[in-house]
C-alpha cells in the first residue's frame, strides 16, 4: 500500500500547486460556511417573514440584498436556499455517481451478454418520459414523506421547521439519483472497456487477482479523470432539476426556496428588479465555476501519467 499513499501525496502536492483549483476550493468552503453557518448568526433575518409594505426594496444596511416581491429578506433567502441547493448538489450527485460508476464498471468489465442486458436497460430508462416518472413518483411518495416527517418529529422532538425542510428533500434525492446515473454509467462503461484491454490489466489477470479486485483497484483508478469531469459537469443540471421537481410538488415547499427557484423568480422579474436575479445567480454561478475548476484540478492531479511531467 506504500505506492498508494505516495500517489495520493503526489496528487495533493500537484493540486496545491494549481492556483485555480486552490482558489476554487476556498470559494467553495466559503460558500458552504456562509450557507450553513451564516443563518445561525443573529443578524441574518428570517427567510420567510413576509412584509407586504416593504416589497421589492433596494439593498440597504438592513436588507443587504434588498427584499423580494413579498417583502422577504433576499440575503436570508439566498443563504437558506443555498442549503437546499448545496445539499441536493452533493447528496443527489453522490447517489447518481455511486450507482452510475458501479453499474457502468460492471457492464463494461463483464462485457458480452451481461453488458448487452445492462445497457439495453439503460437505453429504456433513458427513453422513458422523465416527467411521467416524476409525476408518478410524486403521487407515490406524497404520503410516506409526510408520515416520515411526523415520525422523526415524534421520535426526536425537534421543531417541525427544522425537520421538514430536510425530510422533504429525501424524495428529491431519490428521484434525481435514480435518473441522474444513466449518463455516468455510459461514460464509465466506455472507459472501462477501453482500459481493460491495456497490458497492465492483462498482467493483473495473469497474476490471478480476483475480478472485483482488478476492477475496483486497477481499472477504476485509471478512469477517475473522466468520472470527475462528468460529475462536476452534472452538478449544475442536478441543482436546476431540483427547481423543476420542486415546481411539480416534489421537494422544496413554499415558502422555502432554493437557488434554482430564486433564480427562476428573478429571471421573470429581471427587467423590473435585476438584483433579484443577480444575487442568487452570483452564488449559483460561483459555486459551479469553483466546482468545475476544482474538478479539473483534481483530474490533473490524479492523472497517473501527468506524474511524468
Amino acid at each position: 500500500m506504500e505506492k498508494g499513499t505516495s500517489l495520493w501525496k503526489d496528487a495533493w502536492h500537484r493540486l496545491a500547486h494549481n492556483r485555480a483549483a486552490i482558489v476554487s476550493l476556498f470559494v467553495l468552503v466559503f460558500i458552504l460556511l456562509l450557507c450553513f453557518i451564516g443563518p445561525l448568526m443573529p443578524f441574518v433575518k428570517s427567510p420567510t417573514a413576509i412584509n407586504l409594505s416593504n416589497t421589492g426594496a433596494a439593498p440597504s444596511a438592513d436588507f443587504w440584498f434588498g427584499t423580494d416581491q413579498l417583502g422577504r429578506d433576499l440575503f436570508a433567502r439566498v443563504l437558506y436556499g443555498g442549503q437546499v441547493s448545496l445539499l441536493v448538489g452533493l447528496v443527489a450527485t453522490a447517489v447518481a455517481v455511486f450507482i452510475g460508476v458501479i453499474y457502468g464498471a460492471i457492464a463494461g468489465y463483464a462485457g458480452g451478454k451481461i453488458d448487452d442486458l445492462l445497457m439495453r436497460f439503460v437505453d429504456i430508462l433513458f427513453a422513458l418520459p422523465f416527467l411521467v416518472l416524476v409525476i408518478l413518483f410524486a403521487l407515490v411518495v406524497d404520503n410516506p414523506a409526510s408520515l416520515f416527517t411526523d415520525w422523526i418529529i415524534a421520535k426526536t422532538g425537534f421543531a417541525r421547521d427544522r425537520v421538514a425542510p430536510i425530510t422533504t428533500l429525501i424524495p428529491l434525492f431519490i428521484a434525481i439519483g435514480a435518473i441522474g446515473w444513466l449518463t455516468i454509467a455510459r461514460i464509465v462503461r466506455a472507459q472501462v472497456m477501453a482500459v481493460k484491454k491495456q497490458e497492465f490489466v492483462e498482467a493483473a489477470v495473469s497474476l490471478g487477482l480476483s475480478r472485483p479486485r482488478i476492477l475496483f483497484r486497477h481499472i477504476l483508478p485509471n478512469v477517475i479523470g473522466p468520472i470527475i469531469i462528468y460529475t462536476t459537469l452534472a452538478v449544475p443540471g442536478i441543482m436546476l432539476l431540483e427547481s423543476v421537481l420542486s415546481f411539480l410538488g416534489l421537494g422544496v415547499k413554499p415558502p422555502n426556496s432554493s437557488w434554482g427557484i430564486l433564480i427562476k423568480e428573478g429571471a421573470d422579474r429581471m427587467e423590473v428588479n435585476w438584483l433579484l436575479l443577480f444575487f442568487p445567480s452570483i452564488f449559483f454561478a460561483s459555486t459551479l465555476f469553483a466546482l468545475n475548476f476544482l474538478g479539473d484540478g483534481l483530474r490533473d492531479a490524479l492523472d497517473p501519467k501527468s506524474a511524468k511531467d
Binding site: 443540471g237 433564480i263 427562476k264 429571471a267 436575479l277 459551479l288 475548476f293 479539473d296
Partner: peptide, 17 residues
C-alpha cells in the same frame, strides 16, 4: 482559465436566464 471560464458560462447560468 479564461478559455474554460468563457466556455462554462452556458452551464453556470441556467438557460432560462
Amino acid at each position: 482559465f479564461i478559455c474554460l471560464s468563457a466556455a462554462m458560462i452556458g452551464i453556470c447560468l441556467p438557460s432560462f436566464v
